[in-house]
């Protein structure tokens, strides 16, 4: 070849973070790389990890998901066990949406109980998400931190609640997902704030807020790409694994609407809507993906493995 070598090297390395498993489960490590994603260059000790989300509470499932979940159980622990096993998910993302006043209004103790049950039923690494309602989450996170009998990650800490979430995590040895609203500077600031109160860097994941396909995905795409470039270029506070939660792709009308026939079958389309979001996030540099559709977990798992280490 007479043209130049197109490979790139970077001075930085992304922090390696391990999500520990329960007894009999396999822990999963992400990060540790010195290169951009999906390229045969640099060091890449870990492939991207694919997880599945289970949500508590009274929410209508998108058609594509209710099709996929049919007969897999309704009890969170049973459903989680079945879906993780069937899909090969490397970790579980348990969202306690049911504690939200509008989505079930579960008592905090019930939320904590679900966490305990699910973690016993499913040995894979876990991330536990709050319900998104500030006042409830303020009570929920400490209870979850205590109820979890093994180390998990708490999702999420933001600029406002980080003292509370990180405090709960530190007290019981959990990790923290640091959330910021599609803004590279706020992503960095969140990590600095967590560092200020003593959360060790190998227990932090960046959640840059993932817009769904068609609804802001492009902002997430560029922010993830920039966070990764900054981290590899030596900005230590951004050299952390990035988690993309694909939940918003299931809020798109295009993923849900069964009336528009010219859009194709809603069951296939919904799944594709999440899958396209997933691939874009991987191309940008995501290290962990949280999917809801078990077939997407299986597809992504099968493809992001060996050749793309």
């Amino acid at each position: 070849m007479t043209v130049a070598n197109p490979q790139q090297t970077f001075p930085g390395r992304i922090m390696e973070v391990t999500l520990p498993a329960g007894e009999g489960g396999r822990s999963v490590s992400v990060g540790g790389q010195t290169a951009l994603p999906l390229l045969p260059e640099g060091e890449r000790p870990n492939a991207a990890a694919i997880g599945i989300e289970i949500r508590t509470g009274d929410e209508d499932l998108p058609p594509s998901l209710s099709h996929a979940f049919g007969g897999k159980g309704t009890d969170p622990a049973v459903l989680a066990g079945n879906l993780v096993e069937e899909s090969g998910a490397q970790f579980l993302f348990l969202s306690l949406a049911g504690c939200h006043p509008d989505l079930g209004g579960h008592a905090v103790s019930r939320g904590a109980g679900i966490v305990r049950d699910v973690l016993q039923a499913v040995p894979c690494p876990a991330i536990v998400g709050g319900c998104g309602e500030e006042e409830t989450d303020a009570l929920l996170f400490p209870a979850v931190a205590e109820a979890a009998q093994r180390p998990v990650f708490l999702s999420y800490a933001d600029e406002k609640n980080y003292r509370l979430v990180a405090g709960a995590a530190l007290a019981y040895g959990h990790g923290v997902v640091a959330w910021s609203p599609i803004d590279i500077n706020m992503a960095k600031q969140a990590n600095l704030l967590l560092g200020d109160i003593g959360v060790p860097p190998h227990r932090v994941l960046i959640d840059p807020l993932t817009g769904g396909l068609g609804y802001g995905l492009e902002y997430t795409y560029s922010i993830v790409e920039r966070i990764r470039l900054a981290g590899l270029s030596g900005d230590a506070a951004l050299a952390r694994p990035i988690l993309c939660h694909l939940g918003d792709s299931w809020k798109a009308r295009e993923a849900l609407d069964s009336a528009e026939e010219s859009w194709g079958d809603v069951i296939a389309r919904g799944r594709r809507w999440e899958e396209a979001t997933a691939w874009a996030c991987l191309a940008a540099g995501a290290d962990l993906l949280v999917c809801r559709h078990p077939d997407n977990v299986r597809t992504l798992r099968g493809m992001v493995g060996a050749p793309w280490r």
């Binding site: 396909l213 068609g214 859009w263 194709g264 079958d265 809603v266 594709r272 396209a276």
Partner: peptide, 11 residues
């Protein structure tokens, strides 16, 4: 299949 092409065009 529009279920394939619509997401790709949106992306």
């Amino acid at each position: 299949d529009p279920a394939d092409i619509f997401p790709l065009l949106t992306l």
